[in-house]
Amino acid sequence: MKTETSQTKTAPSAAEIQTWLVDYLAEALEIDAKEIDPEVPFQDYGLDSSAAVTLTGDLGEWLDRELDPTLLVDYITIKQLSEYLGSTEEMVL
């Protein structure tokens, strides 16, 4: 009997992804989540390319989908990234 929860679970929405990213960044920067503005570019939080690659990898693991390491080059804020990922969930491999 294979009724894994992951199969019945729906993919996270843009809003859920946004919350995950805010919490992730707050924890990485050791600041309060309230201080993170989803419309401020990742770069302005001091995220260099190595940190961006780590974030993308961790996010992909949480979403259980393969994410390209260049994602944060084109989607430069939490808002842009979560809206993009929330709208493309059907492309899950």
């Binding site: 390319s49 190595s50 961006a52 690659v53 780590t54 990898g57 390491p69 260049t70 944060l72 080059v73």
Partner: peptide, 15 residues
């Protein structure tokens, strides 16, 4: 793996 990914980002972005 990480070094290759960071390089991909660097060349893709033009940095």
């Amino acid at each position: 793996e990480k070094y290759l990914q960071v390089s991909i980002v660097g060349f893709y972005s033009g940095k």
